[in-house]
Amino acid sequence: MSQSATSRPVYRSPFDLPREEYLAPGHSLCAGCVAGMIVRHLLKVAGPNTIVVTATGCVEVSTTLYPYTSWRIPWIHVAFENAASVASGIEAAIKVLQRKGVIDPNKRINVIALAGDGGTYDIGFQALSGLLERGHKVLYVLYDNEAYMNTGIQRSGGTPLFAWTTTTPVGKVWKGKWQQKKPIAEIVAAHRIPYVATANPAYFIDMVNKFRKGLEVDGPAFIHVIQPCPTGWRFDPRYSIKVAKLATETAMWINWEIENGEFRVTVPVPKRKHVKHYLRMQGRFRHLTDKEIEEIQRFIDREVEYINKRLGKEVIGPLVE
C-alpha cells in the first residue's frame, strides 16, 4: 500500500503500466542504453499533460536531432546547467497563467526536469539547489551514468571511486578516479523537500512508483536513478539490466526514499553479494587490484552499516557471496 494519498494508482506489475509510449522510438541512444527505458516509464507515469525540460546530455542529443524528435509531449532544452531554473520558470508561469485564466486552471500540468550526472552533480548543482530552496513543484529526475557520456566518458562528480574514464585514465601514476562519488541524493535531501528517492531501473516497479510519488507531492521531488551505460562502463549492452541489478544486490546502489521526512529502504537486500560481482562485469573497473576492490567493499560495508543504523533494523543484510 502506498503511504501517501495519491491520485495515480499504485503500480504492482507490468500490466499496470500504461501502454502508451510518449518517447517515440527512432532515437539514437546507444543500443542497450537504459536511459531510454527510464524515460519511457517516467513519461508513462506522467502522462500527456507534462512538460519536460532536459539538460544538455545524452538524452537531449539522442532524442531531438533536428528535424526529428522522439518526444510526444511538450519538451524544451535550453542548456547544460539550468534545467532546474528553466523548470522553475515553467512552473511559475503555469501558476500565474492559470491564475489569470490564460491556461485552464483545472488542468494539472506536470513539470519535469531531466538531467544527467554532469548536469546535476556538477554544472547544474547551483540551479538545482535554487529550485529546491524556492520550493517549485517540479519533479527532477537524475539519470546517473556516472560520467560525461555525451562528450565521451569524462569524469564527473558522480563517477565512482577508481573508475576509469577518459579523463581519469589508468596509467603508471593514475589508476582511475581517486575520489568518491558525491552523495547527491543526500545533499538534495538536506534541502528538506517533500520527496527524495533513489531508484534502479532493474527494480522497475519500485522506480515507477517513485515517479508516481514524485509527481504527486506538493513541492519539489528529486529522484536519482542509476543508469548503466554499456558504452562508458564497458560491458556488453545485453547486460545493462544485469549490471543494474547487481548494483543493488551488492549494495553499491541502495534504493531508498524520504517521504515527508520519513526515511525507508524500499528494496531490502537480505543477503548481500560482494562488490566484485558488480565491478568485474565492467571494463571501467578492469584494472582494479584485489586490494582496491576490498577498499570499495569496506566503503560499502560502512554505508550499509550507516543505513541499517539509521533505520534501526537490518534492511541490507550481511555479505554472503
Binding site: 542548456a79 539550468n82 523548470a87 522553475s88 520558470g89 515553467i90 511559475a92 508561469a93 497563467l97 491556461i103
Partner: peptide
C-alpha cells in the same frame, strides 16, 4: 533561464 522557461509556456516575462 527561468525567464526563458516562463516565456516558453507563453508568459510575459
Amino acid at each position: 533561464s527561468a525567464a526563458i522557461g516562463a516565456a516558453a509556456v507563453g508568459a510575459r516575462t
